[in-house]
Amino acid sequence: MIDFRFFLEIIPQLLAGLPLTLELAGTSILLGLVLALALALAQQGGNPLAVWPIRLFVAIFRGTPLLVQIFLIYYGLGQFRPFLKEIGLWWLFREPYWCAILALTLNTGAYGSEILRGAIRNVPRGLPEAASALGMSRLLTLRFIVLPLALRAAIPAYGNEVILMVKGTSLASIITLMEVTGIAQGLISQSYRAIEVFVAAGAIYLVLNFTIVRALHALEIRLTPYRSR
């Protein structure tokens, strides 16, 4: 029943999509982290002109499906081609690759900013107070007291977000990018062996996600030596 030769045949084909999956996930997670940090920090002052637009952005990207966001950016904005050409951004919205990265980045930036905002809020209040009593400026306090603690505390929750992003890259296949899921779908519709292809492609994702979870766990332990046993 189980045909190992078939597995040997499809695994290299599926692995050929792995670089694209990693590229999409890696780029959008890194850019998304920068965006998330910027959004979380911009809300710290409590300035309503900063807080409300960010809240709205976050609510929109968390309240709508990622697929709608990808389609809106790729197909929806494609409608404004003359305007985008005029402002010199057409190269970006023309390519499904950049549209996928943009959608994934904005999406994870919105989710990530909430994680970081919560982590910053959970830093014990006495610490920044002590820092200011020592005469540290707000920037110094942020850099040396608040952020190191908050970023460390955010690792487990951010890890979940990273896994969701890795899974989210599969949606790029719907706008023609042949990453692992896109290749898997092609293989299934050619061979009609859904289970075998699912097992092989699923194993690639599971190994990838397992590696990420272990790596983040190791990072967390390394960054919290005082708590390790």
């Binding site: 896994i163 899974k167 989210g168 890259t169 599969s170 949606l171 296949s173 719907i174 899921t181 898997a184 779908q185 299934i188 519709s189 009609y192 859904a194 289970i195 699912f198 492609a201 699923g202 994702y205 599971l206 996600n209 397992f210």
Partner: peptide, 22 residues
């Protein structure tokens, strides 16, 4: 729990769509 939370939902959908029909 591990498999279906770790694999993209799109892949699971293809599994049931093609697998179910087969």
């Amino acid at each position: 729990s591990t498999i279906f939370r770790g694999v993209p939902d799109l892949l699971t959908i293809y599994l049931f769509y093609y697998g179910g029909s087969i």
